[in-house]
Design a protein around this nucleic acid. Structure first.
Lengths: 186, 186
DNA sequence: TTATCAGTTTACTGATCGGTACAAGATTTC
DNA sequence: GAAATCTTGTACCGATCAGTAAACTGATAA
């Protein structure tokens, strides 16, 4: 008996492992152990090894955010898209129970390896949010500050709720942020 | 010829290495390589190995914050202590060029190893800031929210400025936070 | 049936991991 | 200056690291 995978099935499994253990902590043996996928299969799909695996995970995350968050922020009704962002983000990060892999990679030596992808992710998020804020009748300077503050606050909330093992901190922080941005678009 | 160290000299060197590489990324060989301190000396001062080294670093960080930030927030003139906090924090984190090791540890599997120290660090920071805010004539509920928001914002600013390799983001975020807290104590 | 081929399994490699043992050098104590 | 104590350098340990090689499996298709 043998189980057959395809690349698209493996990426989300890898994502969860990198999230829990970090790039350096996610050893090949821990990956095979947790996924049940042998080294042979992993290197078949990701000949570049661990670095290619993490790269695929980052690309997958980027794709999800582009579709579910950035694009609506850029194109849809501004206030509605911002409201949807808070819901999607709270859902995606499981109310703080799940971390942002891109943010985690930014903090240690892994940043050097993926600096382009990491920078892109945040720049595009901030830019998309700024665009939505401006369409919602927010002054240009204020929109930039608020966009940065929003993304910044989400990252901080993830660190804090993880450190305190308290999802309420995350939920509360997001609510405060949402109110502040909403107030600026009235 | 041989160089002689003592524990207190080694801890800051270790801190910088853990900051740059993370717990898993900081291997014994990289530590000896960067510090020039041999394994023999390292295990002489830290018989518990890498875990004891990281523990000592966390204790050192905690001590610095207790003295330079928490204590003034709890005991000194409230508004003055808060103003001093922003300056000390900007200085300590080198305007975003240096990360918060406690926050970084909170994000990956290292959290499990040091969860007590990590939780303590943030709880005491928030509590001290809340105490200062309340002495500065801030409503009880608002003080709690603002204290969380302040610490949360600092952590987020570190992630963001690191990801974007842009210290200006850090400086700007801190200014925005400082203004918001100041406004609530008028 | 047979050839092909994506995907899996297993066994293996050399390098590096965290950690130990211990002798030699340096410092303090008397 | 000798003894005792602290500190360091070196060699080493078994375990695990990322990565490779190749035989094997099962499905597809001629």
């Amino acid at each position: 008996m043998k189980t057959v995978y395809e690349r698209a099935d493996i990426v989300p499994l890898l994502a969860e492992i990198f999230r829990e253990l970090g790039y350096e902590g996610a050893t090949l043996s821990r990956i095979t152990e947790r996924t049940g996928i042998g080294k042979g299969s992993l290197y078949h799909f990701f000949p570049g090894g661990k670095e290619e695996m993490a790269g695929a995970v980052l690309a997958d995350i980027d794709g999800w955010f582009e579709e579910a968050v950035y694009r609506p922020l850029r194109n849809d009704d501004a206030r509605q898209a911002i409201a949807a962002m808070w819901l999607n983000v709270a859902d995606y990060f499981r109310s703080g129970g799940r971390i942002c892999l891109v943010g985690a990679f930014a903090l240690d030596g892994t940043r050097e390896r993926f600096s382009a992808a990491i920078g892109d992710y945040f720049i595009r998020w901030i830019e998309a949010l700024r665009s939505a804020l401006m369409r919602a009748e927010c002054a240009e300077r204020e929109a930039q500050t608020l966009a940065e503050e929003g993304v910044c606050g989400i990252q901080g909330a993830l660190v804090l709720s993880r450190a305190l093992k308290d999802e309420a901190v995350f939920t509360r922080s997001l609510e405060t942020l949402a109110k502040r941005l909403e107030a600026a678009t009235r």
